[in-house]
């Protein structure tokens, strides 16, 4: 199947458009999360999504309304993770673990009472980007615009707290507010990403593009640009390969991200070997 032919299908247009938006959001936020050592928050929030989606699915809401109904639960959970870390002096990963397992447990109970796993839940577990509706594209677009504007507006604040929270604090940056904002924006992005790659694979979409960019980028700005580029390209390539070879799109997107990460690590290793050889050569010449 060639690309122009594929692009004539409405469901593929919707999938690529939404997928690219989600890919960019996750890869941008992923960099901040990795540097703040909060990368697993995506995984934890994804598990919460399972519980939240199970609740909204049991109410038999229309897909787009179900997505909207999940937003407040996700936002509350992300703030709860921060609150738990802050108030109980638990490390971030413990707080994430607690909220994450609570989300899964609630999801299982609600789903089992609702007569077992239905197709909606299955779609959220493993992603179903090709089944995205027009309303969901609109919601994704609005959230994409909102999250992107927030990242642009608070870019320097996010950069500063990623570098050092204490120095940021005594530069007048409201670190608590920025941390909460980062968690909230992640919650919104995870919610969207659930449709793209599914709950089980969300953290890879947050982690892999940023991890690849970290291997090769020198400056913070370049790192963000590279991460977003990988996030969006991997979605386009993933959907195309999945359709050509008849594979699940979600897993294909993740594997393509993994391949890019491996390539980036090899490039880095190659360059550092070359650099070492040049340094050793110049020392020998002296």
């Amino acid at each position: 199947m060639n690309i122009p032919e594929l692009l004539t299908y409405g469901f593929i247009q919707r999938a690529i458009l939404t997928g690219v938006m989600i890919g960019i959001l996750c890869s941008l936020l992923g960099l901040f999360l990795i540097l703040r050592r909060m990368s697993l928050i995506g995984d934890g929030l994804a598990h919460v999504t399972f519980g939240a989606t199970a609740i909204t699915a049991s109410l038999r809401l229309y897909s787009a309304y179900s997505l909207l109904a999940t937003i407040p639960i996700m936002l509350a959970s992300s703030l709860l993770i921060l609150k738990l870390t802050d108030k109980t002096r638990l490390s971030g990963d413990v707080a994430i673990g607690i909220i994450s397992s609570a989300g899964i447990a609630i999801g299982i109970i609600v789903t089992s009472n609702g007569g077992g796993y239905n197709t909606d839940i299955f779609g959220y577990l493993f992603g179903n980007i090709l089944a995205i509706s027009r309303e969901e594209v609109l919601i994704a677009f609005l959230l994409f615009v909102f999250v992107s504007l927030m990242i642009c507006f608070f870019y320097n604040d996010l950069f500063y707290i990623s570098f050092n929270e204490e120095l940021a604090k005594i530069s007048g940056i409201r670190t608590r507010l920025i941390n909460s904002m980062l968690a909230l924006l992640t919650a919104l992005s995870v919610l969207l990403a659930m449709k793209l790659v599914g709950i089980m694979l969300i953290s890879s979409l947050l982690i892999l593009p940023a991890a690849s960019a970290l291997q090769v980028a020198r400056s913070f700005r370049t790192c963000l640009i590279l991460s977003a580029t990988q996030g969006s390209l991997s979605v386009i390539l993933g959907i195309y390969v999945a359709l050509c070879v008849n594979l699940p799109a979600s897993a294909t997107i993740v594997l393509i991200n993994l391949l890019i990460f491996l390539a980036a690590t090899s490039v880095k290793r190659l360059f550092s070997k070359e650099k070492r050889a040049i340094t050793a050569g110049s020392k020998a010449a002296v």
Partner: peptide, 23 residues
């Protein structure tokens, strides 16, 4: 954080953030 992806220029510029409002 290692490897922190920022140049010397970017780190020094952080010192100027205190007198500004977002962005």
């Amino acid at each position: 954080p290692h490897p922190f992806p920022a140049t010397v220029n970017e780190i020094v510029s952080l010192g100027l953030m205190a007198g500004k409002r977002p962005p």
